[in-house]
């Protein structure tokens, strides 16, 4: 609130320059009180100013401060997951207007430019709902553990420099290394399915992100030592051969990671690894 002694100019004031007319945006939110509880839809009207740069999370914050539905019913604040708010942590992934994406980069001026426009929010459907828009993605981290997604270095002591690497190879690895485990590729994948039971995680399809990570680690001089172990996992049920080539993963990836390239490359490596294993046994 600007006052007589304002000295550091906050950008919060509604009269801030560049901020235009306000309008009402309706949010239809699929809510659920917890695992095993039924889902329901609630609507909220949120005032948004043109040009203020509001995103879905800013609107959810406004709903949290004023948890009253469009019909005037008092309710609880919507629960959601968020972190960096700049699309590098992956936390705020949800289904916005039917499509998996990060809520932080979903700008209201783009999605709902006119007064009365509607935006629907749903939790991701491929992971168990914790509450409302917040889901449990621990399966993705479990898969990274199973794939030994690390470099088996000798320890944290100073043992000299790492391997030299050509820039082309670094660029290739970097692309896969920007994967933020958000789960968009899995949400959009027709082959990846909700598996609430951790006991079935190791035989159900691992999905594109895991295949991309397999390539990332197999391509590194030290991490690549574990490539045969990772390829064993890729040959197992739920491995790379369960991919159905719908290629949605690469289209919804917010980091534009060439996931389908990884699927093909790992498919090739798995074929060779499978043949080797067949003849070596």
């Amino acid at each position: 609130m600007p006052n007589a002694t304002s000295q550091n100019g906050t950008v919060e004031d509604p009269a801030a320059p560049g901020v235009g007319r306000t309008r009402t945006v309706r949010f239809r939110v699929k809510r659920c009180d917890g695992p095993g509880k039924p889902s329901r839809w609630e609507s909220f009207d949120v005032r948004v100013a043109q040009g203020e740069g509001a995103n879905i999370l800013a609107c959810l914050q406004r709903i949290a401060a004023n948890p009253v539905t469009a019909e005037g019913a008092k309710t609880t604040p919507v629960v959601w997951d968020a972190g960096c708010l700049e699309e590098v942590c992956g936390a705020c992934t949800m289904v916005v207007n039917g499509r998996a994406r990060q809520a932080c980069s979903a700008l209201i001026d783009t999605l709902a430019p006119n007064d009365g426009d509607e935006i629907t929010l749903e939790p991701m459907s491929k992971f168990p709902v914790v509450r409302d828009l917040h889901v449990d993605r621990s399966r993705m981290f479990h898969t990274l553990k199973r794939l030994k997604a690390w470099a088996p270095i000798d320890g944290l002591y100073a043992l000299g420099p790492g391997p030299r690497e050509q820039p082309a190879r670094q660029q290739e690895r970097y692309a896969y290394s920007t994967c933020m485990t958000c789960g968009c590729c899995l949400e959009a994948c027709p082959q990846f399915r909700l598996e609430p039971q951790p006991g079935r995680w190791d035989t159900a399809f691992v999905g594109a992100n895991a295949i991309g990570q397999t390539l990332l680690f197999n391509e590194h001089a030290i991490a690549g030592e574990l490539a045969p172990d990772r390829l064993d996992e890729m040959l197992a049920p739920g491995g790379v051969s369960d991919c159905g080539n719908a290629q949605n993963c690469v289209k919804v990836c917010p980091k534009e990671i060439p996931l389908t390239d990884a699927i093909a490359a790992i498919g090739r490596a798995a074929t060779i690894h499978g043949l080797k294993r067949f003849f070596a046994r």
Partner: peptide, 9 residues
């Protein structure tokens, strides 16, 4: 793709 013949887009 499955067999890894076409690796790039």
């Amino acid at each position: 793709i499955t067999w890894g013949l076409t690796v790039t887009a």
